[in-house]
Amino acid sequence: MKAAGFGYHRPETMAELLTLLADLPDARIIAGGQSLMPMMNFRVAMPQHLVDIEKIDGLDSINLRDGTLQIGAMVRQADALASPVIKKNCPVLADAIAYIGHQQTRNRGTVGGSLCHLDPASEIPLVCALLDAQLYIASRRGTRMMNFRDFADAPLTTSLAEDEILTRIDLPICDPDTRHGFGEYARRSGDFAVVAVATHLRFAGETITEARMAFAGLGAIQARADRLEMFATSQKLSPALIDKLAQEAAQMPAESDLHHDADYKRHLAACLLREVLERILRHG
């Protein structure tokens, strides 16, 4: 239960960091270390080099600019959870983060770290899938932007190249016409989700003009449920619609895992979606 040996690097500037990433063979970035350190202690991960990005300035700010919420990759989950800016402008993210681990892990764990680890049951990638987050990627070759869908390749696998780093996550801000919901089932408080759901609905009067619903835990990657979204668009949110959506959710493709079979996960997805939508219906 001890990490194998590695070379340790703690660059102080972005330029220094990008050079290290370009030059070092088999380097892993450590942000908060709440996923990577357990993997290293188990020796599931044995990188030759560890590049610690804690000292680099400018990666931990939360800003509102041009109608977009910009979250630095090194923002601690606990700070994101406590941020009035996030609570006001992207409440679904704040709700989601409350489900991540515990106070002690949220104090170290970062928003960007969770995204790059890309566990299929995790909450931050779910919100990024829901809201089509734009991700900023830097390397010595330059910076680029990509959609979460292009970023998330496979479970625990992003499309980042070895010399690249995620620096910022951009999310659209919610406005008075949108309602959101988040629900999760885990076997114990703070455990990995078995299934989680996030929704984002835009209304014109009582009619849903834009419906977004995304799930974690069902498949390999957090993803929106196109079919459910189609059913909800242009409809009035009503008990009848919620019944229909829950029935549809119970038919979604799902993958069994060691502890939960696909039918059980579909059942959870339907129950959670119903709960979340009924909450929106009740509270307006």
Partner: peptide, 19 residues
């Protein structure tokens, strides 16, 4: 293994001494 690092609770098994 919870300790306070700069007054915040953290798992001391998930942080390196060098950090």
């Amino acid at each position: 293994c919870t300790i306070l690092l700069d007054s915040r609770s953290v798992r001391s098994c998930l942080i390196l001494a060098v950090q």
